[in-house]
Design a protein around this nucleic acid. Structure first.
Lengths: 355, 355
DNA sequence: TTGCACAACGCAAACGTTTGTTTATTTAAC
DNA sequence: GTTAAATAAACAAACGTTTGCGTTGTGCAA
């Protein structure tokens, strides 16, 4: 009953035409202040709610922005969305959120649905098994702005916002070097993906900057879990000769670093005196465990904010990407704690207390 | 250029009417298989994408479900959404996600926007300072189904999906009692909210079931942070006489429990021999710290799934709520670890190892 | 008085679909 | 071979807005 009140109803009630109502509601200059007030009053009186579908249809433009990402239930991604929302909401856009679940096929379906919903723009973080990006080109071809974040594909000519993993990874390695570690290994996730590829490159950069040995055997490029990491470390100390053993581990995830810590403890070695460890992500537990974990903090909110700002700009300018392309790098920050602090470790009282 | 291809274009190209195209695309029986195939072929050929706004407008029903919640960037909420999406996606609904940011005003705006977008249903978890629920009644009045989850308001006659905090809180307290703790305190978040009110009631239930003393002084009902908890515990052991001191703390959050642990350690007391501690949420760190924290695991995905299933049903039945109301309780699970295990503690080798 | 500018609003088409009702064509039935 | 039934597609109206253009009425200068 109440649900069908349209602009016409309020027009009828006021003995004017729908056009007047429409203009009054959108504060058009050629409507007298008197009628505007009257319209507004009776609008709420009749419990009128504008119909965005009709509006969007007529105007040819929607009120929403589509977001597709692999999985929403991670700390990183949900904070990206948090950042995105903080800029799209004030701009008056709804957020339509889709999960690709790391599936290429679902990602394509998501894009299709967003196009069908006539979103004003698309923000995307690629699924793991997305190789082909024709569906993204299709978005562009339909003239809807596209911005990638976090997991991007560089061959596509669009704007993006990502972590500056490379330089901070280098920072981490340089830090280890300064603490006296000389044989630094990396335990990384799959290095064919954008994210881990960059961390690996940063790792290599750091070694070069510190004039340290680059040893292929110290590069573990497909570590995916804590237990996996534990096993790798144990194997290293079982099989390797002393001189070919790493004395520090740069891990591309805090869970991985935790595995390393546990193995090292079980081996009876001391951290950071014998072995240094650095993680990635600044998971909440990293500051709580003992020894507290040196790690790298990311700023997912900032990434979301940056990506959202770009797309809002594109929408307003009616462009589908900026030319030349803009790539925003958000620099993660190295957080030095106990697992890598040989120097400050001399004075135990200086240890950073768990926050 | 490519973006404006409509049903008419493909109609023109095939020398038929738009209605034929529409019916062909939706597999209407009164269209020959021949033309259906032809239509489908030329549709993709012309890169046609249906316009949902037009469709929704004409049919009077949208393709999306609105979700409004306080903050998306928490482990609990993002997993709720994960669950929700896992049922709405196969049903063909988009998810429009709004954050209220714990603000009543923004929550109202969100609802307004969702109504304007003509969502088929609304899922909501209330903001902290939502007292008035007229905006929700308005949703119902407009005949759109509404389901609440997690933070609900019981005075509103709608379906809901929530944690069964009460019984599991009682479980936790009973467990403490069985371990020999006799003076059990609770450190809780604001007990005027639905969630914490239930945990408090469960706590009281547990005490009664165990025939333990209920002491008003052991009920701390506005603990909001780790540091806050630390301070409270220290104060207790500074000021209180021995017999009025609690010997166990049931905390409504793992961070709070962590604060307790730290204070107790600093006071030189032993856990769990002197003091027992239980947290809530099973945060990742809870299994990693030593001693590992007994806590309560929730199942946010299940809550999301349940809520989503209900609303899909309501939408399909054209109802706005089921009568009588359905309230789905998802029972959290007590995870016993070291901070509460006096009994199994006799044999240290039985301690559950950090997972 | 005429002319003119301007303010305030009406008219009607359009956005892209969907759908009830006709119409035209084919097939089956007797 | 005539008529009824079934099939396939056309016609046109409708969903709720927006917007270019046209129409009024008023005040004011000439």
């Amino acid at each position: 009953m109440n649900q069908k009140v349209t602009i016409k109803d309020i027009a009828k009630k006021l003995n004017v035409t729908p056009s007047t109502i429409s203009r009054a509601l959108s504060d058009h200059p050629s409507i007298s202040t008197k009628t505007k007030d009257l319209v507004r009053k009776t609008a709420i009186e009749l419990n009128y709610h504008p119909n965005r579908m009709a509006s969007s249809l007529r105007r040819g433009k929607g009120h929403s922005i589509g977001v597709v990402l692999p999985k929403i239930n991670s700390n990183f991604m949900s904070n990206c969305i948090f950042g995105i929302e903080s800029v799209t909401y004030p701009s008056g856009y709804d957020l339509i959120i889709c999960q690709s679940n790391e599936s290429f096929e679902k990602e394509m379906n998501n894009i299709e649905a967003l196009i069908a919903s006539r979103v004003s723009g698309v923000l995307i973080s690629l699924s793991r098994d997305t190789k082909n990006i024709d569906h993204l080109r299709n978005v562009l071809r339909r003239n809807v702005p596209l911005v990638m974040f976090d997991r991007i594909e560089e061959s596509l000519n669009v704007d993006s916002a990502v972590n500056d993993d490379r330089t901070t990874s280098a920072d981490a390695v340089v830090h280890l070097a300064k603490q006296g570690f000389k044989k630094i290994a990396i335990l990384s996730g799959p290095t064919h993906t954008y994210v881990y590829k960059n961390r690996l490159m940063g790792y290599l950069d750091g070694l070069r900057l510190s004039n340290l040995e680059i040893n292929e055997n110290w590069i573990y490029s497909n570590v995916f879990s804590k237990d996996n990491a534990k096993k790798i470390v144990k194997d290293i100390f079982k099989k390797s000769l002393n001189k070919s053993r790493p004395d520090a581990f740069f891990c591309t995830g805090d869970k991985i670093a935790l595995g390393v810590l546990q193995s090292v403890k079980e081996l009876g070695l001391s951290i950071p005196d014998d072995i240094g460890v650095i993680g990635y992500a600044n998971d909440p537990f990293s500051s709580i465990i003992t020894p507290s974990l040196t790690t790298i903090e990311q700023f997912p909110k900032e990434i979301g904010i940056s990506a959202a700002k770009i797309i809002i700009n594109l929408i307003e300018q009616g462009k589908t990407f900026t030319s030349p392309n803009k790539k925003i790098l958000i620099k993660p920050q190295l957080i030095v704690r106990e697992t890598s602090s040989r120097v400050t470790n001399l004075d135990a009282s200086l240890k950073s207390s768990p926050s």
